[in-house]
Each structure stands twice: as C-alpha cells, then as structure tokens.
Simulated assay, not measured.
Amino acid sequence: MKALIKFTVPLLLILLFTYAAASKLLDIGRFRLQLYLQPFPHWFADLLLYLLPALELALALLLCIPRWRLIALISSACLLAVFTVYISLALLHFWDEVPCSCGGILNRMSWNVHLAFNWAFILAAITAIALHLTDNQAAKPPASP
C-alpha cells in the first residue's frame, strides 16, 4: 500500500500541475484577464501570469525525478496550501467577488468543491511526504556509539 501511495500521489500531482499550467498557457489572454480581476495589483497579476504556470510545470518535472521527489512533494503541498488559503478567504467573503483564475475544468468548480479538492490533494501530498520520510529514516544506518 505504501508503494502504491508513493507512486500514485506524485503521478496525480504531475497530472494536476501539468493540466493547470497547460490550460493557463493555452488561453493566456483569458488567464491574464482573470488575474486582473483578482484583488491584487496588476503588476502582481503580470508576475503571476508567467510565474504560476512555470512553477506548476517545474513541480511536475521535479516530481518525475526520484532524487527531487520529496522536495517537490513538500513544495506542492505548500503551493496547494497557498491556493487553499486564498480560496478560504474568498469563501469567507474577504473580497466582494473573486473569479477563479484556474483553467479548464478546475474553473468550473464551485468554491466549496475547489476547497475540498485542494484539501484532498494537500492530505495526499502530506501522506506521501510522511511515507518518504519514514522510508528515508529506515534506510539510514544506525548511529555509532
């Protein structure tokens, strides 16, 4: 079961981040417009326009490399946590109205569904991180007295 989780979670994250980045880049004009409607300055939206897809693709790539997988899992959980905080603030009506700047099918989710979706991926990433850490601890030789 551990091996299945350690294989499946990175694969799901790779699919998620690749899909999210591709949908943003394939309709970059729409993504830019949605970012400009967000409750932050346009200069920050311009930065996110390229930074978010690049980060998502970089994480997808790093998740493919066993040596970098643990760092990529931790980074993935952190990125998803940032998105989740943002979604939570939207649900709490911190802003008047915030359009989702996600792409593709993710854009069609309600805020509540999006929040549950993110939490599911965060918990999956944390589980995979824990399994990687326990395997790394078990692989270390005992300390000499």
Rank of each mutant, 00 (worst) to 15 (best):
Leu11Ala: 12
Asp135Pro: 04
Ala125Tyr: 01
Ser23Asp: 07
Leu48Pro: 03
Ile65Trp: 14
Met109Leu: 15
Ile71Met: 11
Ala21Pro: 06
Phe44Lys: 06
Asn112Pro: 05
Arg32Glu: 13
Pro10Lys: 02
Val82Glu: 07
Ile65Ser: 02
Ala130Pro: 05
Phe117Met: 08
Ala116Ser: 12
Ala125Ile: 01
Trp95Lys: 08
Asp96Lys: 14
Leu115Thr: 05
Leu73Tyr: 03
Glu97His: 15
Ser88Lys: 01
Ala120Pro: 08
Ile122Cys: 00
Leu59Trp: 01
Leu47Gln: 09
Thr134Gly: 05
Val113Phe: 14
Ser101Asn: 10
Asp135Thr: 12
Leu26Asn: 14
His42Pro: 13
Leu80Phe: 07
Ala116Glu: 09
Ala120Val: 15
Val9Tyr: 05
Asn136Trp: 13
Gly29Met: 01
Asp46Gln: 15
Leu16Gly: 06
Val113Cys: 00
Leu73Gly: 08
Ile105Lys: 10
Ala77Asp: 01
Trp95Gly: 09
Leu61Met: 10
Leu11Asp: 02
Phe17Pro: 08
Pro39Met: 06
Leu70His: 15
Leu13Thr: 07
Arg69Cys: 02
Thr127Phe: 08
Asp135Ala: 15
Phe94Cys: 11
Asp27Ile: 02
Pro99Ala: 01
Trp111Asp: 10
Thr18Pro: 02
Trp111Tyr: 13
Leu16Glu: 06
Ile126His: 07
Pro10Ser: 03
Leu11Met: 10
Leu92Lys: 12
Trp43His: 11
Cys64Ala: 15
Ala128Pro: 07
Leu115Gln: 11
Phe40Asp: 06
Leu133Lys: 01
Val9Glu: 04
Leu55Thr: 13
Ala20His: 02
Leu11Phe: 10
Tyr86Ala: 01
Ala60Trp: 11
Leu35Pro: 02
Leu89Pro: 02
Ser101Thr: 05
Leu47Ala: 06
Ala22Phe: 13
Ala81Tyr: 12
Trp119Phe: 15
Tyr50Lys: 03
His93Gly: 00
Asn107Tyr: 10
Phe44His: 07
Ala125Gly: 02
Tyr50Thr: 09
Arg108Asn: 10
Leu115Met: 12
Leu133Trp: 13
Ala58Asn: 02
Tyr50Asn: 07
Arg108Glu: 14
Gln137Ile: 14
Trp119Thr: 05
Leu35Ile: 10
Leu49Ser: 08
Tyr19Arg: 06
Cys78Ser: 11
Asn136Lys: 14
Ile74Gly: 08
Tyr36Phe: 12
Ser88Gln: 15
Leu47His: 07
Ser75Asp: 07
Leu35Glu: 07
Ile14Pro: 01
Arg108Gln: 11
Gly103Thr: 04
Ala60Lys: 01
Ala116Tyr: 13
His42Thr: 15
Cys100Val: 14
Leu37Ser: 10
Ala45Asp: 03
Leu55Glu: 00
Leu16Pro: 04
Pro39Val: 14
Leu79Ile: 11
Asn118Lys: 00
Thr8Met: 10
Asn118Asp: 00
Ile105Gly: 01
Asp96Tyr: 13
Trp68Tyr: 11
Leu91Pro: 08
Gln38Leu: 04
Trp68Glu: 08
Trp95Val: 10
Trp111Arg: 05
Trp68Met: 11
Asn112Ile: 12
Ala138Gly: 06
Asn112His: 12
Phe17Leu: 07
Ile65His: 11
Glu97Arg: 14
Leu51Val: 12
Gln137Phe: 15
Leu47Arg: 04
Ile129Asn: 04
